[in-house]
Design a protein around this nucleic acid. Structure first.
Length: 343
DNA sequence: TAAATCCAGAATA
DNA sequence: TATTCTGGATTTA
């Protein structure tokens, strides 16, 4: 029997590393034993925090604590813990007892340039979700990252690096917000920055080329777009009224713009669309451009069909039933309107 | 800048 | 329906 087990001592976390320049905040739970002994954030030599922080910026690691802190400041990264004090045996989050929370909302109030919060592990995330975020009176977005603790060995280093790279993407303003729409036919997703929709993902086409972005929970733009898509899928909306971004070559933009002129309930062939975009011989190229459509539904690539009137393909899948479903949806709505007009 | 690749097309039998 | 013939856009070297 270990006699020290019966007398846990109260431990206290450190002051935040933060200034008015800080743009992101990284939250842990409580410094581990080694960190407490040295009075330095993430002092355990096998904790991956410092290696990851330097690696995501492609910078060589520094051992000097003062330089490490300086590195955080110069990259506008703030650091703190969700707990102010607690009792704990060893260094594991699981053993945290009688915890007292830090005033995360207060910190965010005092440093208004911080809009994005990353949580180092699940315990910090849970605490931030329940006692931090709900009390912040301005838009702040949080993301959970895999813990850098040596105890979290089941997740490979490469995965951790991939996830922690989101901090750099955020600092470089490569930020998106996602809203998911669950339907009987599958999950639709909207991804937006703070001004416009960047991507619409249809069921079965999750192959996101978005690993260069940090994807946060929904914002106003993604919510509004998702709302309109829901209405469209319910047959209650015929056109979209949201800002979105078209990407591609100048010819591709011409094609998308010509396609936007094709009204609800109508279809067009690849050849005809090519001609309207200024090059009537570019039918196959139009096919390639359709496949790359960043915002399907908004740019209605489902209205493009073969010259024989058949559903050739959609989202890279030949004869995709989702295209048939969308076309039917539009035809039904038109038929309904005709019926009403004639009675 | 030249060649290779792509394509959810179009035309034909 | 299956096969062949396309050729512009895009990617790669």
């Amino acid at each position: 029997m270990n006699k020290t087990e019966s007398m846990p001592v109260v431990i206290k976390s450190f002051k935040p590393v933060v200034d008015q320049n800080s743009r992101v905040l990284i939250l842990g739970t409580m410094p581990g034993e080694e960190s407490l002994r040295q009075q330095q954030y993430y002092a355990h030599p096998r904790n991956l925090f410092w290696p990851l922080i330097y690696t995501i910026f492609n910078k060589p690691q520094e051992q000097d604590y003062g330089k490490r802190i300086q590195f955080l400041y110069s990259n506008r990264i703030a650091l703190w813990d969700v707990f102010k004090s607690c009792e704990r045996e060893g260094s594991l989050d699981n053993n945290i007892r009688k915890e007292e929370s830090n005033d995360i909302a207060g910190l965010l109030e005092a440093f208004p340039n911080i809009r994005y919060v990353f949580c180092n592990g699940g315990a910090a995330w849970k605490q931030f979700q329940t006692n931090g975020l709900p009390f912040v009176k301005r838009p702040v977005f949080g993301l959970r990252l895999p813990s850098t603790s040596p105890a979290n060995a089941s997740i490979p280093y490469e995965t951790k690096l991939e996830q922690w790279s989101k901090i750099r993407f955020t600092l470089e303003n490569r930020i998106l917000h996602e809203t998911s729409i669950q339907t009987e036919t599958g999950t639709y997703k909207v991804l937006a920055n703070d001004k416009e929709v960047i991507r619409v993902c249809l069921p079965g086409s999750d192959k996101q080329v978005l690993n260069q972005f940090a994807v946060f929970p929904e914002n106003g733009v993604s919510i509004e777009a998702a709302e309109q898509i829901k209405e469209y899928l319910a047959g209650k909306r015929k056109c979209f009224n949201i800002p979105y971004r078209l990407e591609g070559s100048s010819f591709a933009i011409n094609v998308y713009q010509a396609l936007l002129e094709v009204p609800f309930g109508c279809t067009i062939s690849y050849g005809e669309l090519a001609e309207r975009a200024g090059n009537k011989k570019a039918a196959q190229a139009v096919g390639q451009i359709m496949r790359k459509n960043p915002v399907p539904l908004i740019v209605p690539c489902h209205r493009v069909i073969g010259s024989t009137g058949k559903n050739i393909g959609f989202m890279g899948i030949r004869g995709n039933p989702i295209q048939n479903m969308l076309l039917k949806l539009e035809q039904n709505r038109i038929a309904e309107e005709d019926f009403r007009q004639n009675t």
